[in-house]
């Protein structure tokens, strides 16, 4: 088994600061999203990535602008990490007309084709085959784009996961599958219902792939392993399956307090919180406190501004209701 947990030294300071900024942005955004949910402004459901920011930030940093992200309902972080501004994402959560999809998708379906975010999918496993299709298209058209597909540990037990892995392997598709193993499905521990200890890494061999396990709470390590997998895909060497070990600080969704998890486990993982951990590393590398504080306050201002802009967004009008079922912009099914 390959483990790539050591921080690489190949990342220069400028990129490290960007990685820190990205993680802080995801942390503060998700915290705000939770607060707005408690204020009853985020309607419906939402699934936060608090505690898992290093994966979204680290992988996105290894991608090119022309690469594609396929995310799940737990997709705020992956969307933002690709450079989608906070305001439309927050406004989408609030169901406003200035939302990323004008309120038609909601928290679980964040999509920004312009930024290569090719959708957030809420049916477990469905997007793995879809990511294969985008990768097939890149392969067929001879572009060197790579599709990167995120999913949870529980997702490794659905058929689509296995169909997609085999499919990507036999066609040598430029796709990177990233399992964010946060140990829990909704309210059940994944190992209790899975035949192997490492739900993704232990299955890689079945598809002729290298078994890759990475510390998902270390943005540098994630960046490193993602960069290698993406380079491999871009070079035509086929897919990779990465298992990134991490933990969600909160519950599965909405107001779930996550009480089914033992306190010691939560405490143990909070001690490995990727954001302060990365901050400490930067301090160790000689970055001064003022630089870090500046980043943090800039991001906080950004979240504040996005909150105001999202709250000020118009309520979507009836004109949107019947729009865009079809490519011609309409919804008519008869003449």
């Amino acid at each position: 088994m390959t483990t790539a947990t050591k921080p690489t030294t190949a990342i220069d300071l400028e990129h490290r600061l960007a990685l820190y900024r990205s993680q802080v942005a995801l942390r503060l955004f998700e915290t705000r999203a939770y607060d707005l949910f408690l204020e009853n402004l985020v309607k419906g459901t939402s699934h936060l990535s608090l505690g898992q920011e290093a994966i979204a930030a680290g992988v996105a940093a290894a991608m090119r602008e022309t690469d594609w992200t396929f995310a799940t309902y737990r997709g705020h972080a992956h969307t933002l990490a690709r450079g989608v501004p906070m305001t439309p994402v927050l406004a989408e959560l609030l169901g406003r007309a200035n939302g990323l999809m004008a309120g038609k998708g909601g928290s679980m379906h964040l999509t920004s084709v312009e930024h290569g975010v090719m959708g957030s999918y809420a049916i477990i496993g469905a997007h793995l085959p879809i990511a294969c299709g985008a990768a097939w298209s890149a392969q067929y058209r001879g572009t060197d784009q790579v599709a990167v597909c995120f999913f949870g540990d529980g997702t490794t037990n659905i058929g689509a996961f296995h169909e997609a892995l085999n499919f990507a392997a036999i066609w040598k598709l430029p796709v990177v599958f990233i399992c964010e193993n946060n140990l829990w499905m909704e309210y059940t521990r994944t190992t209790e219902v899975t035949a192997v200890a490492h739900p993704a890494a232990d299955r890689a061999g079945a598809y002729g792939l290298e078994s890759i396990l990475v510390d998902g709470n270390d943005a540098d390590a994630v960046y490193d392993v993602a960069a290698r997998a993406i380079a491999r895909a871009r070079a035509g060497e086929g897919p990779s399956l990465i298992e990134a070990e991490t933990y969600r600080h909160g519950g599965h969704s909405r107001a779930d307090p996550g009480k089914y998890r033992p306190d010691e486990e939560v405490a143990q993982w909070k001690a490995k919180d990727p954001v302060p951990r990365y901050r400490a590393r930067l301090v160790e590398l000689g970055v001064d406190e003022a630089t870090l504080v500046a980043i943090e306050s800039e991001v906080a201002d950004e979240v504040e501004a996005a909150t105001e802009a999202a709250k000020a967004g118009a309520i979507p009008g009836e004109d949107l209701l019947m729009k865009d079922v079809w490519a011609n912009g309409g919804s008519s099914w008869r003449n």
């Binding site: 085959p129 294969c132 299709g133 985008a134 097939w136 298209s137 067929y140 689509a160 169909e163 499919f167």
Partner: peptide, 13 residues
């Protein structure tokens, strides 16, 4: 699922 997922991903790109 892979057949139709692949078709969808190819179509969207």
């Amino acid at each position: 699922q892979a057949i139709l997922g692949a078709a969808m991903g190819a179509a969207m790109t």
